[in-house]
Amino acid sequence: MSEPEKTEPGGPRIPIRQLDPRSLRGLAHPLRIRLLAALRHHGPATASQLADRLGESSGATSYHLRQLASHGFVEDAPERGKGRERWWRAVHQGTSWDPSLFEDEDPGTRGAVNVFLHEIATLHAQELNTWIGTMRDWPGEWASSADLSDFTLRLSARQLRELDEKVHAVINGYRDVEPDEDATKVRLHLHAFPQRSD
């Protein structure tokens, strides 16, 4: 079942799933997170196709797709299926947090938060390493246009939230831009976190 669309700051309406303790526990498994990411990034697929892409057995992908479906993250894509072939698609194109998840004292929820965040960080690192390993396969203008930067600022929690909202607004503003003829899919990662000074 699809949730209502939400407006990202400065951007058009895109379907976003807000995680609560129950849905987070349903998603917080490394393979489920990778399956959902693959469906979001590459579009509908069968369990066998996803197994090939992720180096897993089709039995494992099939089981975890059904678990994702029971929590409303994926659904059938019947228009793609032929015969007994079952196609799956992501219900939402993004995920947002209920801030209370970080304060939840339930051990199951705390463990799910850790699994989810570590797996997302791993996926981001894998995507970045793939780009670094293959960037010479791209025309030179792509290598010079891509970015791998880091910054250190002194901010309060309020200022960090404000900065995040402004950066998200700039990024989402590009959803409505008419793509150039040579446009391709571009991934952007945003990491912002406090660090002790000692």
Rank of each mutant, 00 (worst) to 15 (best):
M1H: 13
L160H: 04
L153M: 15
L188D: 08
R80E: 15
L155Y: 12
T130F: 04
P78I: 01
H118L: 12
H71D: 03
T130S: 04
G81H: 07
H64E: 06
E119H: 07
D52S: 15
K6D: 12
P12T: 07
T152A: 05
P12C: 08
N114F: 10
K185A: 03
I132Q: 15
E75A: 07
R25H: 03
G26W: 01
D147H: 11
P4E: 14
L160S: 12
S100L: 11
H168V: 11
K185R: 15
E75T: 05
R158Y: 01
I16S: 13
G83W: 13
R66M: 10
R40C: 02
H92D: 02
H41C: 05
S2Y: 07
E103V: 13
M135W: 09
R158F: 02
D98K: 05
Y63K: 04
G55I: 05
L36M: 00
L190W: 08
G81T: 13
S156K: 12
K82F: 14
V167Y: 08
E165S: 09
E8R: 11
R187D: 10
A183F: 05
R84K: 12
G173I: 03
K6A: 13
A90C: 06
S62I: 04
P179E: 10
E75C: 04
L148R: 06
S149C: 08
Y174L: 06
F102M: 14
G43V: 02
Q126K: 08
S57N: 02
L128D: 05
D164T: 09
L101F: 05
F73P: 03
A157P: 07
L188Y: 11
W131S: 03
R86N: 08
K82M: 08
D52A: 15
N172H: 15
D198W: 11
A69F: 09
N129D: 08
F151N: 13
R86E: 10
Q18M: 13
E79S: 14
A37F: 00
A60Y: 09
L24C: 02
D20K: 01
R175V: 00
R84T: 09
W142S: 13
I171R: 00
K82I: 12
I171N: 01
R110K: 06
D176Q: 15
V177I: 04
R66G: 12
H118N: 14
L36F: 00
R110W: 01
E162F: 05
N129G: 04
F116C: 10
R32L: 10
V167G: 12
H41A: 07
R187Y: 08
E85P: 03
A157K: 14
D182N: 07
L128M: 13
N172V: 07
A45S: 09
W87T: 06
I132L: 15
L160Q: 15
V177R: 07
G94W: 03
E56D: 15
G83K: 12
H42R: 13
P179W: 08
E162T: 09
G111M: 14
S62C: 10
A38E: 07
H64N: 14
F151R: 15
R154F: 09
E75Y: 00
D147Q: 15
E165G: 05
R187I: 09
D104A: 05
E75Q: 09
R80Q: 09
W88N: 06
L19H: 02
P194C: 06
S156A: 11
